[in-house]
């Protein structure tokens, strides 16, 4: 074999090894990708399609991933971009309802709604919330707010990673997170009150 063909064979072998490693590392993150995808869209089928598209694109464009950088953030960026490309309508800035002023209000509401009169243990208070209400409240958040809440509160990204994934300033991440969390709590306080 000539030197040139030997070196290109070595290059091919290195490429293949890097690609396999990249694909395995990406697959190890698929549970987390699915977890967020499931809450970005309305149904399990759509979430499955979105995750498949995400991985198809990631595997196709693996060379554009810089080894040593954050693969998880890179995958989530593909996921959120694809979700927007899939025809999620750009939302008009929703008419923002006034927020509850206090971050303690959900606890205060739930504590008040206790029927036995005794001040409840705060660990028991959370049991007054229902799982379905949480899923619905999250689904009802405007997209922009939900994206940030999902990335930070479900996928554990830092504000700065979330800013890069969504390509928005970090200050916007913080304000959407603040507002999104308050809206979520507001919705849960309302449903808890309706059910008690």
């Amino acid at each position: 074999m000539s030197d040139a063909s030997e070196s290109s064979a070595r290059q091919l072998a290195t490429d293949a090894r890097d690609r396999v490693r990249f694909e395995e590392e990406a697959l190890d993150l698929s549970d987390q990708v699915y977890g967020v995808a499931r809450r970005l869209v309305g149904s399990r089928e759509e979430a499955e399609d979105l995750v498949q598209e995400t991985y198809a694109r990631a595997f196709r464009s693996w060379r554009s991933f810089q080894p040593g950088t954050n693969l998880r953030a890179w995958l989530f960026r593909i996921l959120t971009n694809l979700n927007i490309d899939r025809g999620r309508k750009v939302q008009r800035t929703p008419d923002l309802q006034p927020l509850e002023e206090s971050d303690y209000f959900l606890y205060n509401k739930l504590e008040e709604s206790g029927t036995d009169g005794a001040p409840p243990d705060e660990r028991r208070v959370v049991e007054r919330l229902s799982q379905n209400d949480a899923v619905t409240a999250l689904a009802d958040l405007p997209h922009d707010f939900r994206d940030v809440v999902l990335l930070v509160d479900l996928a554990d990204f830092t504000y700065s990673d979330a800013a890069q994934i969504l390509d928005i300033p970090i200050g916007t991440v913080m304000s959407r997170l603040h507002r999104g969390r308050r809206m979520l709590k507001g919705a849960l306080a309302t449903s808890a009150a309706d059910e008690s």
């Binding site: 698929s30 549970d31 699915y34 977890g35 499931r38 809450r39 399990r44 499955e48 995750v51 971050d103 959900l106 606890y107 705060e122 660990r123 208070v125 959370v126 919330l129 799982q131 949480a134 899923v135 999250l138 509160d153 479900l154 979520l184 709590k185």
Partner: peptide, 19 residues
Amino acid sequence: RFEEEFRTFVRQAVSEPMP
């Protein structure tokens, strides 16, 4: 303490395992 419990609750409530 409630906030901690609440965050755990939301995370568990909305989590669904991948098929």
